[in-house]
């Protein structure tokens, strides 16, 4: 499951011409550590919803990788 999130993050980064990352951890900030802007985050949420059928931004802002896991109930 976490590998899937890594794969989705890298799809978004690569679509924007940004460098793919090799590892993610829950404390990483989407904006500061993964260098995502609001349009990147929009694509991220769409791709996560397509995979897991959960809209992570529906009821508030998500800032870190750990908060994505929490929304998806990944322990």
């Amino acid at each position: 499951m976490e590998n899937k999130i890594l794969e989705i993050v890298n799809t978004v980064l690569e679509n924007r011409g940004k460098k793919a990352i090799r590892k993610i951890n829950p404390s990483m900030s989407l904006r500061n550590d993964l260098d995502m802007d609001s349009l990147d985050l929009a694509e991220l949420t769409v791709r996560i919803e397509a995979e897991f059928d959960i809209d992570i931004f529906e009821d508030g802002i998500v800032n870190t990788v750990g908060e994505i896991y929490a929304k998806l109930n990944i322990k």
């Binding site: 694509e43 791709r47 397509a50």
Partner: peptide, 9 residues
């Protein structure tokens, strides 16, 4: 619609 456009680039 925009979300669907993002998903399919």
């Amino acid at each position: 619609v925009i979300r669907q456009m993002l998903l399919h680039k």
